[in-house]
Each structure stands twice: as structure tokens, then as C-alpha cells.
Write a protein that binds this DNA or RNA. Structure first.
Lengths: 109, 109
DNA sequence: CGGCATCCCGCTAGATACTG
DNA sequence: CAGTATCTAGCGGGATGCCG
């Protein structure tokens, strides 16, 4: 999921897909767009998303600088994810993708 | 590459990625944005893209209604691909993806 | 010239079980 | 509650060779 290609991007647009591509990232970002979320909340909201892939996706988004991860040192543990500044700049893209998707689905009927 | 999922899309935005996702589609669409192209031209312009994956990508874009495929019954054969109406409606998305990609690459330095 | 058919490899993501 | 560690399966993508 979103490994860095050996060669430089042919297009900047491909860099964008590297970041938001992957089976679940869009959905994850959609939730985070509405506000911070804990790991357990993701698990409840998206039961089909396995623990492993969730963590993996969140890590990659974090490494891309799109989201932040805050750990509260307490028992039981608590980890909160939220959009970063850079992540918020993605909102326009997400909206556009959604809009065109709706248009496309309608046009294909 | 862009197989239809068994279950309905969680988000319309995911439908968009289904269409333009895949390793080479963005690049192909970029070329078609500049005008119609023949198969042999793609092969020259993008030598790293294999015949098989090119055809496959073009078929999927065609099935999605994004591009059109015109066959000229002559010898030697001639096949021309170009953006459809629906495909042209993608231009905004492509531009946005490129813009954010540039911004992102710059921000990550 | 354009495009199938075949074989093959690596990667993503899924399932399961275990740790602090 | 959050996160690893393994193992596995399926698919996207690549290489090669053949057909209209």
C-alpha cells in the first residue's frame, strides 16, 4: 500500500494517489474529516477493516504528514488520530472526488 | 485493476479512484487530455508501459465510459483513442490532483 | 499494427494469535 | 485498548510468444 516507487513520479498527480490510494484510506480520511477518532472508534465504525490494515493505513497517513497520532500514557491506553494542517488541505480534493463520483455513478445508470 | 467490488461503494469518492486508479491510467489520461492517440503512439511515448497493461488499462477506461475507441478497418490496422464527454468532465479532478501533488511534494521537502 | 493467451512474480490486504 | 507477528490468498502488473 503506497510504497514509494523506485523512479520519480511521472506526474505530481500520481503522488497524490500514492497518499490517498489504498483500499481504506479514503474512508478513514472521511471519518477524520468530521473530527478526531480513537482506534476503537474506527473498529466500531468500520468492522470490515482489520486491526492490522487499520494500523498500517494510519501509519502511512501519519508518515505522509496527513494525520497526527497522539498517545495518552494511561491505563487503559488511549490513542487519538486527527487531521493535520496538510491533511486539511486535502479536503478540497476529497470533496471533488466525491462530487465527480456521484456524477459518474448517476451518468452510468 | 479497478475490478468492481462485491459490495456497493462506501463513498462515491471511491468510485472515482476505481476509475482513475491503477499504475498507468493517470498518465494515459494525461496524454489523451492533449488529444487523440493511437496505440503505437502510446508505445513510443511510454516505453515502460507494456502492451498488455496498456490494452488492459485502455479497455477499462473505455468500459468506464471515460474514453472512446475507434477502429479503422484498413491494412495495416489503426485504432484511435480519445477522451469522451464523461472523460472531459474529469479534467478538473486531474488538475486538482496535480496541483495538490505539487503542493504536497513541496511541503514535504 | 494491434491485441490476445499464457505464465509468473511481488505486493496488498485479510485471518489469526499473541503482547504490553 | 492498541498494536505487533505470522502466514496466506488474491490480484495487479510484467515478460514472452502467437494471431488477425
Amino acid at each position: 500500500m503506497a510504497n514509494q516507487p523506485a523512479q520519480p513520479y511521472n506526474l505530481p498527480a500520481e503522488a497524490t494517489l500514492e497518499v490517498i490510494g489504498g483500499k481504506w484510506k479514503l474512508l478513514i480520511l472521511c471519518y477524520l474529516n468530521c473530527g478526531p477518532m480513537r482506534t476503537s472508534e474506527f473498529r466500531k465504525e468500520i468492522p470490515d477493516l482489520s486491526q492490522k490494515v487499520l494500523t498500517q493505513s494510519l501509519r502511512e497517513l501519519e508518515e505522509a504528514g496527513i494525520i497526527t497520532r497522539t498517545v495518552y500514557n494511561q491505563v487503559p491506553p488511549k490513542v487519538v488520530y486527527e487531521m493535520s494542517e496538510l491533511g486539511n488541505s486535502l479536503r478540497t480534493i476529497l470533496d471533488q472526488l466525491g462530487e465527480w463520483g456521484e456524477y459518474y455513478i448517476e451518468a452510468r445508470k
